[in-house]
Amino acid sequence: MAWMAWTLPTIVFFVVIGCALLVMTVLAVVFPETPRRGLLRIETTRGDRLFISLLGSAFICMAWLGLIGAPLWWALAVCFLYAAAVFRWV
């Protein structure tokens, strides 16, 4: 795996995403759900909301980096708030 040039932060990043996917799978099996309509007037499941959260977070981090600059810890906090809002209302 040396050719993939792994670093600890990127390992952590992918492990977190992998765990999130795993949790979603387990939740889907244990507590099946029906899609719901929220703020955006589109049908979403938990998986959709996770996707919207992750994609939105990427853009929040890019915007923070472009407008304010590193470090991104506060951007991460904004991402968590955003994700919570997505899971609650979208």
Binding site: A2, W3, M4, A5, W6, T7, P9, T10, F13, F14, M62, L65, G66, G69, A70, L72
Partner: peptide, 27 residues
């Protein structure tokens, strides 16, 4: 894609040697 993510936070001068640069490239 994972490899691209790994490359994006590092610098290389070839020879498969990488140096951590963090978010410098993105910035």
């Amino acid at each position: 894609l994972m490899t691209v993510v790994n490359y994006s936070v590092q610098d290389t001068f070839g020879n498969n040697q990488f140096f951590w640069v963090g978010l410098e490239w993105f910035s």
